[in-house]
Each structure stands twice: as C-alpha cells, then as structure tokens.
C-alpha cells in the first residue's frame, strides 16, 4: 500500500445518495481474477450516459470524489476500491459511508473522509462553480482545505498511522503470532473443523 500523507488535487461532484458498490463496479466486472484493469468498469453503466458527471471534460483528471451520503453501501466487493483508485481517485469525501467499503478503502490506501453533509455540499458547489479549484486533503492534520475554507475530519490514530506509513496489515498482525498460537491452544474443544 502506498503511504498517504497529504494530497492536493481537483475534485468531481457526484450528487447522488446511496451509491452502492454495484453502481461503482457492476458485477460483470467481478469475474476478473487479476487486481488490475478495473478503471474501465468504474460506474460503467452510468458512464454510458453522456451527461454523467465523470464524462464532463471539465472534471477530467480529478483525484477527489465528492460523493453524496451513504456512499459504497451494499456488496463487500473490494473491486469498488480498486476501480476508484485505478481510475485515478485518491480520496472520497462523503457524509456517510457503507462500513465495509470504508474498511476496504483504508486497507488499500484510498482515503475515505467523512464530513458533514452541508460541508460536502458546500465543497460540491465550490467545485461546480470552478472545476479547477484545488482541494487539499491533509491526513496528518486531519483537515480538508479549499479556497479560503477548511474543515476538520475525524479518523482514529491507528488507521491514520497505518495509512501515513503505508503499512501492510498482515505483516503487522504476524508480529502477534505468539498471541495467536496461544489463543488457539485455549479454543473450545467442540468448535468445528471443515476437514
């Protein structure tokens, strides 16, 4: 995972609520066994509509997605995160996220930022007025800055540390291998095995 400290870029406003992961990446794209090439599937049904915001050339190259509330609900597919990253997004800002999507994002280094709905709407309006507006997402300072405005956001210390260091979760957990082995010795005897 690439480390994430601070990112500055342009943003694209997606004024829809309840964007489920089936919309972010339709199931037909989930048949791939590799981890690459998912950018083509990002919002693929909606992108067929020429008026869809990602087809607006003024937002080309945007790296921050300003989404409506309840972004990433539904299916656990991490492919949704891969598709957003491979398309070029580093950050998604929304008032609420689906829990699994948000968790998957932090595992991959796509930063999910929760801001109040009014703040997200204010940034959306600012970007609609000026699509070249630069937005800075400062993970170390836990702050989003645009024009002369700023808004703080919350993220727990551990997740922030892992993201800013770009650390691999499995490597971290394996440091506790002795704890895992000792827990295993005390498991209840009737618990099932699959073999």
């Amino acid at each position: 995972m690439d480390a994430f400290t601070t990112h500055t870029g342009r943003a694209v406003p997606l004024r829809r609520s309840n964007v489920d992961t089936d919309q972010i990446i339709p199931a037909v794209w989930l048949k791939q066994v590799s981890r690459t090439g998912f950018e083509k599937g990002l919002f693929s049904a909606w992108r067929e509509d020429p008026t869809f915001v990602l087809n607006d050339p003024s937002y080309e190259g945007a790296s921050i997605l300003l989404a409506g509330p309840d972004f990433g609900t539904g299916s656990s597919r991490e492919h949704a995160v891969w598709a957003l990253q491979q398309y070029g997004f580093r950050v998604v800002i929304a008032a609420r996220f689906g829990d699994i999507f948000r968790n998957n994002s932090t595992k991959m280094g796509l930063l999910p930022v929760v801001l109040p709905a009014e703040t997200v709407e204010a940034v959306q309006s600012a970007v609609e007025a000026d699509p070249t507006l630069q937005i800075t997402v400062d993970l170390e300072g836990r702050e989003v800055r645009w024009a002369d405005e700023a808004a703080g956001f919350e993220i727990d210390d551990y997740t922030r540390w892992r993201l800013t260091e770009g650390l691999d979760d499995i490597g971290l957990t394996l440091r506790a291998a002795d704890d895992i082995a000792s827990y295993e010795n005390g498991r209840q005897p009737w618990l099932p095995t699959t073999i």
Partner: peptide, 29 residues
C-alpha cells in the same frame, strides 16, 4: 456482505473485502 446470515445462530458474522480475506487466510485473525 451477506455473511450476516450466520448471525441467526448467535454468532458474530460479517462480510469482508479481499484484503481482509487474504489477512484471514494468512493469520486466522
């Protein structure tokens, strides 16, 4: 995500993404 089904038996069951699938395969945690 529909792993929540198994909670009907009084266990804690939840859906995870592929990074976490790899994590559980490697560590069982």
């Amino acid at each position: 995500s529909h792993t929540s089904t198994h909670g009907a038996f009084g266990g804690l069951a939840f859906g995870i993404g592929t990074s976490e699938v790899e994590h559980v395969l490697a560590t069982q945690t």
